[in-house]
C-alpha cells in the first residue's frame, strides 16, 4: 500500500501537478517579496488575489474577451495596492491593519459584486465567460519527459516563469533594484543618499498588486475557468509565509514556494488513501509552512548568537 503511494510520488503526473499548484504560490510569494524588498508590508495578498480572480472573470464576461478581463483584473489589483499605499503612506495607518481590513472585507465584497451581477452568491457558473487556455510549445512538446513538463501548461504559468526571471534581474542586476533593496534595508540611509524612497515603495506595492492579481486570475481565468467563492483558500497566506522564510533571499523564496506546492501535491495523494487520517493529511501543507519557518528562525537565531550576522 505504502509502496504504491510512494511510487506515485515520482511520476510525471505528480510533477505536472506540482507545476500547476506552484503557479499561484509563486505569484503570491513574489507579491509579498517585492513589497517587502522596499520595506513595505503587504499582508493583503489573499484579498488582492480574490479581487483579481473575480474582476478577471467579470471583466471577461462583460467585455467578451479573456485578455481584457485579465487587464481589468490587473487594474483592480493595482488599485487595491494603491489603496494600501494611500492609507499607510499618506494617512499614516499601519499597513498591517489595512491588510487585515482588506482581508476581512474581500470575500464579502466579492460576494456582493458576484450577487449584483449574476444573482448568485456561490460562483460565476451562470455566466458564459471566455477564459485563457493552455499552450503547447511546438518544438519542445516533442522532447520526451521535458516536453511533457514544459509544454502544455497554462498561459499564466509561462507568464509566471518569465516574471520570476525578470524579477530576479530587476532586483539583483539593475540600479533600480539596488535602490529598492536599499530602501528596505535602511530607508533613512537611502533617503540621505538621494533616493526617492516613497516613490520606490509605491512602485513595489504596485508590482505586488499586479503579481497577486495574476495569481488570483490564474485560479479563475486560466485554471478552473470559473470564479467560485473563497477559491483562493489560503494560498495568499502561503506566499506570505514563503516570504517570511526567505527574509529577502530570492532563491530561498522560490524554493519555499515550490516546497509548499510539493506538499500540497503530496497531501492530494494521501487524502485518497486509507493510511493516514485525512484531517492530518489536509494539514500537511500548513504543517510544512510551520516547520520551515521554525527551522529558519532557529538557524537565524544561532547565526546572530555566534556573531555571523548582525541582528537587523
Amino acid at each position: 500500500m505504502l509502496s504504491t503511494i510512494f511510487g506515485s510520488l515520482f511520476t510525471m503526473n505528480f510533477l505536472t501537478t506540482v507545476i500547476r499548484l506552484s503557479t499561484p504560490l509563486f505569484f503570491a510569494a513574489i507579491a509579498s517579496f517585492i513589497a517587502a524588498s522596499t520595506g513595505m508590508v503587504n499582508i493583503a495578498i489573499e484579498s488582492i488575489m480574490t479581487f483579481g480572480a473575480l474582476a478577471g472573470i467579470l471583466g471577461s464576461y462583460i467585455t467578451g474577451s479573456a485578455w481584457t478581463g485579465l487587464l481589468i483584473g490587473l487594474v483592480i489589483g493595482v488599485c487595491t495596492a494603491l489603496l494600501i499605499a494611500l492609507f499607510s503612506m499618506r494617512l499614516g495607518a499601519s499597513p498591517i491593519l489595512i491588510g487585515i481590513a482588506l482581508n476581512t472585507f474581500a470575500n464579502s465584497l466579492a460576494i456582493f459584486f458576484l450577487y449584483a451581477i449574476t444573482g448568485e452568491k456561490g460562483s460565476s457558473a451562470s455566466l458564459a465567460t471566455k477564459t485563457l487556455s493552455s499552450v503547447n510549445i511546438p518544438v519542445i512538446k516533442d522532447i520526451p519527459v521535458i516536453g511533457q513538463l514544459i509544454s502544455g501548461q497554462y498561459i499564466l504559468t509561462y507568464v509566471c516563469w518569465v516574471i520570476l526571471i525578470l524579477l530576479f534581474i530587476l532586483i539583483y542586476k539593475t540600479p533600480l533594484g539596488m535602490r529598492m533593496r536599499a530602501c528596505g534595508l535602511n530607508a533613512g540611509a537611502a533617503r540621505t543618499a538621494g533616493i526617492n524612497v516613497e516613490k520606490l515603495q509605491i512602485l513595489s506595492l504596485i508590482m505586488s498588486g499586479l503579481f497577486a492579481a495574476l495569481g488570483g486570475m490564474y485560479l479563475s481565468l486560466n485554471y478552473v475557468h470559473i470564479y467560485s467563492s473563497n477559491m483562493v483558500a489560503g494560498q495568499g497566506w502561503m506566499g506570505i509565509a514563503a516570504n517570511g522564510i526567505a527574509s529577502g533571499n530570492y532563491g530561498v523564496l522560490l524554493i519555499s514556494a515550490l516546497i509548499f506546492a510539493v506538499f500540497r501535491a503530496v497531501s492530494l495523494i494521501f487524502n485518497s488513501s486509507a493510511i493516514f487520517p485525512v484531517d492530518l493529511v489536509a494539514a500537511i501543507p500548513y504543517f510544512a509552512v510551520f516547520f520551515f519557518v521554525t527551522i529558519v528562525s532557529v538557524i537565524k537565531y544561532y547565526r546572530v548568537k555566534t556573531g555571523h550576522v548582525e541582528e537587523q
Binding site: Y223, V224, M231, A233, N271
Partner: peptide, 24 residues
C-alpha cells in the same frame, strides 16, 4: 473505487487536482 477527502468545500484548485490524481 477511490475516495478522496480534500478537506474543503471551496478550494476549487485542490478539487481539480484531486480529480486529476483520481483519473490517473
Amino acid at each position: 473505487y477511490s475516495v478522496a477527502y480534500p478537506g474543503s468545500f471551496t478550494d476549487t484548485a485542490l478539487g481539480k487536482e484531486t480529480t486529476e490524481t483520481m483519473i490517473n
